[in-house]
Amino acid sequence: MIVYINGKEISLFDGARIEDAVLTYSPRSYKMMRKGKLMVVDRFGNTTERDGPITQGQKFSLKRTTIL
């Protein structure tokens, strides 16, 4: 399955979750997400929880939260 984080193509196993995609994208970003410093936003501009499932072709971006 292919998804996109900040425009970067990420190849993942079927049934992967957002956190798997962020971890593959960047372990550093993953740690920041776990600490609440980064949030994941879908292509509609909605925030998505890290345990959310993902589907083929979805596009996400990482945004800094305001609690920095």
Partner: peptide
């Protein structure tokens, strides 16, 4: 586990399947 499959860089032609 899904951590290894997401983080480790290794050759695999199969994309992998979640066992749930």
């Amino acid at each position: 586990n899904s951590y290894i499959s997401a983080v480790y860089k290794f050759d695999h032609r199969d994309a992998g399947t979640n066992s749930y």
